[in-house]
Design a protein around this nucleic acid. Sequence first.
RNA 1: GCCGAUGUAGCUCAGGGGUAGAGCAGCGCAUUCGUAAUGCGCCGGUCGGGGGUUCAAAUCCCUUCAUCGGCUCCA
Length: 642
Amino acid sequence: MHVVKVKVSCAHQEGEFIPGITVLEAITQLCPDQAKEALVAEINGEVKDLTTKINNDCQIKPLTWNDEAGRRALRHSAAHVMAQAVKQLFPEAKLAIGPAIEDGFYYDFAVDNPFTPEDLEKISTCMEQIIDQDLAFIRQEMARDEARAYFVAKGEQYKVELIDDLPPDATISLYQQGDFVDLCAGPHIPSTGYIKAFKLLSVAGAYWRGDEKREMLQRIYGTAFANKSDLEAHLRLLEEAARRDHRKIGRELDLFSLQEEGPGFPFFHPKGMILRNELEAFWREEHRRAGYQEIRTPTILSQELWQKSGHWDHYRENMYFTEIDNRGFAIKPMNCPGGILVYKSRSHSYRELPLRLAEMGLVHRHERAGALHGLMRVRCFTQDDAHIFMLPSQITEEIKGVIDLIARIYQVFGFNYQVELSTKPENAMGSDDIWEEATASLKKALEEKGMEYKINEGDGAFYGPKIDFHLQDCLGRTWQCGTIQLDFLMPECFELDYIGEDGEKHRPVMIHRTCLGSIERFIGILIEHYAGAFPTWLAPVQVRILPITDHQSGYAKEVAVKLDQARIRAEVDGRNEKVGYKIRDAQLQKIPYMLIVGAKEIDNGTVAVRHRDQGDLGALTVDRFIQEIGREISEHRTGRGN
RNA sequence: GCCGAUGUAGCUCAGGGGUAGAGCAGCGCAUUCGUAAUGCGCCGGUCGGGGGUUCAAAUCCCUUCAUCGGCUCCA
């Protein structure tokens, strides 16, 4: 009898097996130490179940919790367990989709009554039972008609819709654990017992297929881990993130407020304004060096202007309108038309180009009530805008220049960022050819810079494609900040021109761009990034002077005056409290330096320096301290320091 | 805009049909103190707004506004 053998290699080990052996069995024999850890495996580059039978020679790579695919499989399986529990408790619930996501999973259900927090507890308890039963995940492939009939019979109309939308050649697979069957491509972990720790986190509404015209489903978010301590660590991380929330810190440090009287219209308090002004001063210096000139254009401009620019047709539902002396006006949602009017106020020679006109412009946009979020999404914000008017031949260099400027600015704050290229949206002006040309120019610049980027189809501005720079908040949610948009259309709408070398009129090309994006949003990101402990150059209060008793209050005030003369932002805590109390308060206010002054310091003309993070740094003369903090401030601001 | 939750003093929160509570902050007095909270006292709320049920509403119901978590949308 002839016995066929398959050659399997795993972690540099090789073996021959009779066909039909499972991946897990092969791993157990070849690399036993990994068998316990494996969740799924990569077979010839494809991620598969451990229960997959091997019939051909192949290479196996066990994937564990330490692999992205391993984590996803475990969490996706947890989503199935949750769905099983929901069907058990609420048999009338209809299943939609339940994928693994960053740090967890969710599952969408159609139910008559939304889930309550008590429902979540019940579901959780039921899930624990399912996990205890250690039910195997069993994969089954089915013909399309058969699968369709199966889900029609079960009344799972969302699954039917999913099947109908699968490409004709797709393999249709079902996964079963216990009596629960779900349409699913997989892969899954071998059995429910692999889920060692999970937690259901929240319920939220979500439109079926993300389409607001379709019905709203109930989504349950949860997370799962391979062991309990990792879950606990993750939950602690979430708590810590909540402590960094810019809305909380903004209130605690008295930086800004949001009030019922102005939903989405933030109020900046004195300390928030210091932060803002420092940020703007830094921005102005960087832009001056990069060859920009600053302008300022009006907030209210005539309605006809917005009709001409295309905003009336493409952006009206986001705009606020008003009337002056029976004439229609709009409150600007963007700065570009204003910048264009400045350009048009006189004629330009090719010798002036590129002309870089920057504007800290306050724009108002109507955002839907449910979308507002602290300083991150508001209804009025200041864009650190600029419009670059240039020759077509200057496009790539100018885009690269902006990329460099943004990188330089972010580097001062130590931000990591993601870059996206957004292409033509549905609601766009202009021909496909123009869009293609503009998109290709952006791509070219990105590629010449060797930047990694993701393509974001259909997310461009209505007048042009854009490169977006996304920063993360405390919970890892990303927010668009910088943007570079290439525009051939506005110059056309406004008949912009310059006089070329040939003495004839030519049409310039425009770049619209921001670095910080919105000052408000950027400050929100900064607050969360630093958890309120701003570097000294940005800190609203840089130094607090703490007299030990009121015998030192005169000296404390003298020190404060000296610091003020050196443009160091200092205040005296003259309250009748012990120094420990004052230190605690200054620490909680995240003030970088505390200067403690007692009798000794008066005698020696010094201050006892305590740093927010480094603690007691010993005594220095006031002049020496001013010199050192001054150096720290100027080094940080230029990004040459740490 | 949609789904759900929440709204009580400046802040953090308790109370849940029968006269509004605590801690912190603030103010006053005592204390004069050396690196994360000294003690005592005082002030402070028409319980988000409007309507209803009730002898009586912070509490129950309706409605509206705002906020929070999502969805959608976008700097």
